[in-house]
Design a protein around this nucleic acid. Structure first.
Lengths: 141, 141
DNA sequence: CTGACTGCAAACCCTTTGCACTAAA
DNA sequence: TTTAGTGCAAAGGGTTTGCAGTCAG
């Protein structure tokens, strides 16, 4: 039982929603995979463990996880939405390898500072942002 | 007749494709709008000038403009793909106002340098990237 | 002329919704 | 028990494709 799972249970009970077996399975596999999964990929994983589960339940649970601050939608150029862990994680940028698909999460304080500087130059108040760099990773070179 | 239009004609003739009246209208309005238009928005604009045009033709022409290096797909969080001018333009980042929808295009050389630095730190060869910062613009504050 | 283009309608893909049934609290 | 959740199937929204008629070169 991870912290994130507990947080999800808390989130649900505070809204008088149920921590069902399906939701337990989905959040468990989502956290265990620790990857940038699409709804379809996550569905394939949980379906192996519990054949009777519906694709719809995965969509709905991902929405809940997003509300609960546990999952965060990201987009890497392929047309489906992916979700990454968002529980007690810091903001980070992504280096996406266009050959092997690997995603490196990076955090660089100087880069963050420069982003802020650019915003202030335009008197723009940043709320959130995303930076994806597509290219070739070390292993693929 | 702009340079970009001429480039499109050249691109088409080199591939033995036709510069039709529809394509002329679509590229003309796309360039004139000089905005981040979705296929649907561009369709609405051209439809006003030529009622007989099909939505499909707009989709197909935008794909061609992309191939020709004249349009570039961008995504600002709303779920449809938008296109921006990409003919003889420099890379730039986007400040997207979440209140009025305005998009400020910015280029900051120090920011670009820092992005490169981060890549080299991970021995990652960048091919292209995108940075979108969502927030509140000067006018909306 | 002839191959490319158009517009319509239908198909697609991912996602959401309506609804009767099931299960958590 | 009672309210929320589930799974199915059907509907949505944006985009793509098949096809017969049309047009640019």
């Amino acid at each position: 039982m991870t912290d994130a799972t507990q947080a999800f249970q808390k989130f649900l009970s505070e809204k008088n929603q149920h921590y069902t077996t399906q939701r337990a399975l989905i959040v468990g596999e989502f956290l265990r995979a620790n990857a940038h999964l699409s709804a379809e990929e996550l569905y394939a994983i949980v379906k192996r463990k519990e054949n009777n589960i519906g694709q719809v339940t995965v969509f709905r649970t991902l929405k809940l996880l997003e509300e609960a601050g546990i999952a965060k939608p990201v987009n890497f150029g392929d047309k489906t939405v992916r979700y990454e862990m968002n529980y007690e994680t810091e903001h980070h940028d992504h280096l996406v390898c266009t050959l092997c698909g690997k995603v490196i999460e990076v955090l660089d304080s100087k880069l963050e500072k420069r982003k802020e500087k650019v915003c202030s130059k335009y008197e723009f108040v940043p709320l959130n942002h995303r930076l994806e760099i597509f290219g070739i990773c070390k292993a693929c070179r």
